[in-house]
Design a protein around this nucleic acid. Sequence first.
DNA 1: GTCTATATACGGATAGAC
DNA 2: GTCTATCCGTATATAGAC
Lengths: 236, 236
Amino acid sequence: MSKWPETISMDAFRETWVLEGEPLWQRVFETHRDKMQIKSPQVALGNLEKIFNSTFRLANSKGFQAMSLRDLSRETGISMGGLYAYIGSKDDLASAIEEVLRKAIDDVMSDEAVLRLSPVNRLKAILYGDIFMNEIMLPWYYFCYLEAKGLSREQREAAMRMELKFDERLLDTFKAGVATGLFKADRLELLAANTTAMLQQWYLKRWKFGLMGVRTEEYAAYVFDTTLHSLHYHEA
Amino acid sequence: MSKWPETISMDAFRETWVLEGEPLWQRVFETHRDKMQIKSPQVALGNLEKIFNSTFRLANSKGFQAMSLRDLSRETGISMGGLYAYIGSKDDLASAIEEVLRKAIDDVMSDEAVLRLSPVNRLKAILYGDIFMNEIMLPWYYFCYLEAKGLSREQREAAMRMELKFDERLLDTFKAGVATGLFKADRLELLAANTTAMLQQWYLKRWKFGLMGVRTEEYAAYVFDTTLHSLHYHEA
DNA sequence: GTCTATATACGGATAGAC
DNA sequence: GTCTATCCGTATATAGAC
């Protein structure tokens, strides 16, 4: 019983995993509960949304360290004292962002249904899935990438482990294809690393893709085709 | 009269452009002169080296914003007052780093000799040259990429323009090859963007290449081969 | 040219009223 | 549950001695 949709499309992905809107803030509420003084979800959800989104805006323009909690207070319309009912400290806020994203990625990645797909379809599911997720949770990815140095050592290492795990996932898929004679390439490890890099571009170089007028599914298709080509794959 | 060496190797590149050691700190001294109270290069060069290298170390571990000038004072062994004889302000320091790197890149990129090479050799010169430069000035690149948000709007925009210019440079090379029938590919613009991304990995993902045991020239060769393959190039 | 000592402000965090 | 007022440490930056 896979959670993976039959058709690989942005809409199907959205419906399957539900990583935005109220369910997202529910997730945040759950993971962040112990750091908050607020008990009622009714009250909390809206304010969490304001706090996290404002943090993304401010961190994006001046950086998280440079952003003061007074800035955040102004941007959210919540007083300094009010903010502290939702966060234990400024560092906790950054920490929570990393934690929420990591859990979300873990959820999607631990779905083992993709492993039962043929190498080509598995590759497609992984690449498209990752780009759709980048698209939906863009500010979370962007924050975690660029503010990584502000996180604790444990969290930085967790992020690196996640990336290596993702590379491994790609590598295994490549190898599965090589084993059945579908794919052929040397330096598979480097190919995996650079495929990951291409995917990360989708949130890191948004300004460039904006200028070029490239859309999400178009980019996913490009990455997929390019990777297949590097694997010397030719459709039967 | 090109400055480009006949043989494309790390050593040849090093000798040609001289972007490290005393000549580098000379460059820093020149560009940064107006912000400093110190007149004598004799005295300044050594201290500039200490200040910039310590800044890279500290910014690399905790981020530039999070690093205090007291940290920098401790790390360099220069007193607070002493530091201010070398920098106008903390922001000036970040600004100077961006400026020095941008000028260095400009120097190397404005060498028009590569334009006279055949498409394949030109591509090789650009890719290898960029990676060698990333290798030599690694901390400068890394700093400018990850601390970009702390720079002025002008500097951020200059950095984006530089990247677009580099993409253009690749794109022109691809097109030259297509025109002569050597290369064949669609989505050349995306290919250029992702080639740039692959190159940037060399300073962004040093930890990963370290784990994998990949060396500079090996990576350059990989990027070159991969790009040629994407361009459907086959040696005669 | 380099240091110590200090001015000044701003940031994170909390107490306590409502 | 949210606000205002305030504490206190630390940061940038400078003045002035040596």
